[in-house]
Structures are given as C-alpha cells and as structure tokens.
Amino acid sequence: METHRDDTASKIGMWLFLLTEMLLFGGLFIVYSIYRYKNQEAFHQAAHELDVVVGTVNTAILLISSATVAMSISAIQLKNKKFALFLLGTTIVLGLVFLVNKYFEWGIKIQHHIYPGSEVMAQRGQGDILFFGLYYFMTGLHALHIIIGLVFIAVVFARIWNDKISHDNFALHENAGLYWHLVDLIWIFLFPLFYLIT
C-alpha cells in the first residue's frame, strides 16, 4: 500500500497523546490536592524535609534542556545539522544529570529510612505517609517519563546523524520535542507542590 506522509496528522496524534499524559498526571494532582487539603499541617512539615536546592537545580536543568530541544528544531529547519546534534546532545546530557540528581535525592531519603512501608515511616503520622507516598509515586512516574523522553530523543539524534531527519522532514523531531516539553511542564508543577509549598 502506498504511504503518503502526513506530518500534520502525526503532530495531531502526538498532541492527543500528550493530552492523555496530562490527564494521567491530572488524576495524581486530584489525589495530591485532596490529601493536601485533608493533611495540611503534615504536608507543610514534610515538605521541609525535601532539599530545595536539589529541586531548584533540577528545575533549572529541565528548563535549559527544554530550551535546547526547542532550539534544535529551529537549527534543523535552518539546515544546521551540527548545531542541531549539539543541542540534542546537550539535552540528553542534561536529562541524564537530572536522573543522577534524582537518584542521589532518593538514595539519601531511603538511607534515612524514609520510604513507603519502612518502619520509620510507620511510626510517623498518616499525613507524612501520604506525602512521601505521593512524592515517590509522582516523581517516580515523572522520572519514568524522563527515561522514555531520553530514548525518544536519542532515536531522533541517530536519525539526524543518518540524515533521515532533515529540514523538510522533521515531524519526528518536533514530536520528540513536544514530549520533552510535556515532561518539563509536569515538573514545573511538581516542583512547587513538593519542594516549595512549605
């Protein structure tokens, strides 16, 4: 069967998929807002235990990586392959740094026995249990999306390298960018909800 390329169709498809992602996290935001409403004091105190500096650094990392992806799309449109590859490479490195930070952040918490089901947690209040449960679940799900996004961008990187993506055929590149921005977008809300509202 002959295949004709419809870039707009793939873009609409990508956007529709992003909408489902928004609702996936939307469900979690409902849970968060309800439990925050029911355990205001505990959430307030528990949020103090998270490291604002690490959170802020990770926010900055994601924002910069989002900008580099966006710029790489302009670069490919301007036929500047090398610069596009450089920008995408930067994005991948920044994404990995984000994950490493996350790894250490979780690691320290787990060292202090702050994780769901631990004995230390069992002795603390129910609000704390919910806060850290949500913290691990939501940032964990977000980290999973980072990993998927990195794989997606790596594929785009390889295809630009092989000249399969070029200035007149960059729908996949654009879609990878959209996905990465969505991951960024979710973090923009996770960051204040867990680290800042103390």
Partner: peptide, 25 residues
Amino acid sequence: IVSYSTYLLILALLLVLTVVSVAVT
C-alpha cells in the same frame, strides 16, 4: 521558524520565575 534569541529570552524568563518562586516561598 522561531529564532534562537526568542528561545533564550524565554529560557531566561523561566529561570528568573523559578528563582522568584523559590525566594517568595
């Protein structure tokens, strides 16, 4: 095609807003 400078400007704005929200809270 969005220019690089637009993106950089927006990035700067986003970083400033991040700092502001950390400071305010």
